[in-house]
Nucleic acid binder design. Sequence first.
DNA 1: GCGACAG
DNA 2: ATCTTGTCGC
Length: 308
Amino acid sequence: MKAISQSKGSILPVISGAPESHKRTARLCALQIRNTHMEEQSHEQASIETSPSSSSLDHKTWIETQDFLKKKLIAEDDFTWRLAVTGRSMEKEEEVLKYVGGVDISYSKEDPSMACGILVVLDLQTLQVVYEDFSIVTLHVPYLPGFLAFREAPVLLELLENMKANANPLYPQLLMVDGNGILHPRGFGLACHLGILANLPTVGIGKNLHHVDGVTLSGVMQLLKAKEDYAQDFVTLKGCSGRIWGVAVRSTGGSLKPIFISVGHRIALDTAIRIVKMTCKFRVPEPIRQADIRSRDYVRKHQMRMSK
DNA sequence: GCGACAG
DNA sequence: ATCTTGTCGC
């Protein structure tokens, strides 16, 4: 259940019927930071059934849900904006990619069911955070490999919907997700799941490889090793079936460990790679890195308040 | 049976 | 995901 009041005093729709408590903090900076709120994880999954308990029965419905949503997946560029071309001025009316979002969730060490979901938006030109909102929640759905979305998507989706409901001009034109896109056992990871439910172009960023279709870490490292001259280059993740699941990239020269980029929704792999490279100051692209750092920070602060 | 298994 | 200090380097 939730009822977040905005600066204008509007009340957002109530979502689920779980017990609630909330606390808010508000800060004012150059960037926009929204309210903190505590809530129970929604037991609903945007039109598709999702059970709060995770019995073996859910396993089947989860797979059905993924297969159902997967039919809507668009693995090619499908957006109105375009990338700014350096050295060439653009038409004034032209929509250029400026706001890139990043989402992540951090967990409490003490209470593993307590988590902080976060949404940040960065200006692509400056790579500075221009918007941030987070939500401290209690998760009831466990993490099962291959079903991350059923645990994490509800909170993240809500953060996006709040922003959109307020017609915030900083609403992201593209979202980077901490988790894979089609690089997934059934080709439908968290980034795809979120992309479809939010109807946003999404890119999946994995910090670890989810072995799929014969693609192994040792195999990837082998190929990367063969082209160590090209630190900025990538290795295509082609499975035994011939399918291309994504790419492994050593985004920074100093990082041996690659990140794994895969298509989420409404974007082609090559476009996704270009944009990820544009946002990499370090190994992990800045939208994800900032989401990571900030959500972890909020979890820590929240624990401090609770232990007093 | 054994290993792998995003976050 | 989380548990965890110092340390080497630009």
